[in-house]
Amino acid sequence: MRQPRHPGTEEIELANVLSALGDPVRLHIVEVLADGAEHTRDDFEVALAQSTLSHHMKTLREAGVTRHRNEGTRCYVRLRADVDERYPGVLGSVLAAVRRS
């Protein structure tokens, strides 16, 4: 199975990361992924159509926030560590703000 394209670390733009994180559904996804493990779609527990969830997942991947790995019929998703290398503290600050609210 073909693997999805991910932007290189140098291609990750802060505006794209912040835009991707500006949606409540995507914030929920990132909050689930914050445990550092790989997750499948079933782990996100969102009441959305499959196509809508796919759109949100694609937005996070294209912004450089997540890394997706296809294995058989499953897609495994995790946060990219290199986002923190490129923009230190951004994800942590956003997640801390989400947890406070």
Score class of each variant (00 low, 15 high):
E10Y: 08
E11W: 06
E11G: 07
I12D: 00
I12S: 05
L14C: 02
A15L: 03
N16I: 04
N16H: 13
V17K: 10
V17I: 07
V17Y: 09
V17F: 06
V17G: 03
V17L: 10
L18M: 13
L18N: 02
S19H: 05
A20L: 02
A20E: 08
L21S: 04
L21Q: 04
L21R: 02
L21P: 01
G22T: 00
G22Y: 08
D23G: 04
D23W: 00
D23I: 04
D23T: 07
D23H: 12
P24M: 04
P24C: 02
P24N: 04
P24I: 02
P24E: 04
V25A: 12
V25R: 08
V25S: 07
R26N: 05
R26P: 05
L27R: 15
L27Y: 09
L27C: 10
H28S: 12
H28W: 07
V30H: 02
V30F: 06
E31V: 12
V32K: 14
L33R: 05
L33G: 00
A34L: 04
D35S: 11
G36P: 13
G36W: 04
G36M: 09
A37H: 13
A37Y: 13
A37S: 14
A37N: 13
E38W: 14
E38D: 10
H39A: 01
H39F: 03
H39W: 08
H39R: 11
H39T: 08
T40P: 12
T40Q: 15
T40G: 13
R41F: 02
